[in-house]
Amino acid sequence: MSEVVLELDNVVKRFDDNEVLSGVSLRLHRHEVVCLIGASGSGKSTLLRCANLLETIDSGSISLFNQSLLDDRVDPDLVRRHIAMVFQTFNLFPHLSVLDNVLLGPVHALKRNKAEAREEAREMLSRIGLLERANEFPDRLSGGQQQRVAIARSLVMRPTLLLLDEVTSALDPTLVGEVLDLLRDLAHQGTTMLIATHEMNFARDVAHQIAYLDRGVLLEQGTPDELFTNPRHESTKNFLNRVR
């Protein structure tokens, strides 16, 4: 197996008295796609946010390429430039054009040359088939298009790891396909991804590993075949029966 990109070890996260993650351990290797499945409220989103240091954890460790991210000397802003995140609600910046949305990270976080970054951003937009909408504002785009722009915005950061938080859940069913197709392409190109999703067929197609979260506990993990055809836990079986 290739090198470990992200490693969560025994991560515990509480919001006040509510323990959302109860000692989750997870490993992600380079070029690997891991899908997180589980009911709403099982802690999938929180797990992704913790991995991007958007939440502080209560105990456990998170490391990127074997380097702990919880060390005081680690600048979270630098870490986030390597770990990109795409949200359920897109969160495009409404006051910026599509192109400027994609440019914000490279120009203002990576401080890259603006002309070069613009060229690359346009290439990225053409790759997702939205170059002709580059100068429009996000609210003129459909949900599916907005989410594709959000993914492009993450990709221009050339992240080592892409976190996707139920990126199709807020979409009209007819628009889900275009976003999943884009993610399939990324998976085939070897992008390392941790994907929280309710799209079981998609997960079965692209994931190398499926991890099932149940009320903050990573109950089981395995290849899609293992997990979908032979779930070991009763809770996993029930969940899979409910979503299928």
């Binding site: 946010r49 991007n52 958007l54 802003d77 630098l78 870490v79 986030r80 430039r81 770990i83 990109a84 995140m85 949200f87 609600t89 969160n91 495009l92 910046f93 914000l104 990270g105 203002h108 976080a109 990576l110 959000a150 915005r153 993450s154 950061m157």
Partner: peptide, 16 residues
């Protein structure tokens, strides 16, 4: 709040 999260996840500092 999602705007804040999206910007921070791109690695922008709080000030930026």
């Amino acid at each position: 709040n999602g705007q804040l999260l999206a910007a921070r996840s791109l690695g922008l500092t709080h000030a930026a």
